[in-house]
Amino acid sequence: MHRFLLVLVCGLAFAQEDPALEKRVHDLSSELRCLVCQNQTLADSSAPLAVDLRNQVREQLKGGKSERDVIDFLVARYGDFVLYRPPLKASTVLLWTGPFILLAFGLLFLVLRIRRKAPPAPELSAADRERAAKLLE
């Protein structure tokens, strides 16, 4: 029991060692995708690889590297796929512009639809006007 408590206290002490660093690690790994369970962030995942990569992130930030450096390190190995916010380039153009293209199509469809639904008001002949005027009296 004592040993268990000791381990627990040590563990807590270790985790609390540098809250600022831990926050940076957490913030950065929330931006990164875990490649094993692809819809989880590196921060959320408990896959062994995610743990290893989080340790890498911590080690590198502790070693004085910037967030940018760590991101470059991971992208060089795993590709843009690790980023939850992929950069805009030739291969990701569709990803970034796709929703707007769909929106434009939707608007176009809507405009055409509305126009077709509203036929031009029929011209009234002089006789029709007279009839209408009579009815309204």
Binding site: L35, V36, P48, L49, D52, L53, Q56, R77, Y78, G79
Partner: peptide, 13 residues
């Protein structure tokens, strides 16, 4: 054993 070199090779599975 630590899987450190595998990270350099982009191993994820």
């Amino acid at each position: 054993s630590a899987g450190r070199i595998a990270i350099d090779y982009g191993v994820y599975g």
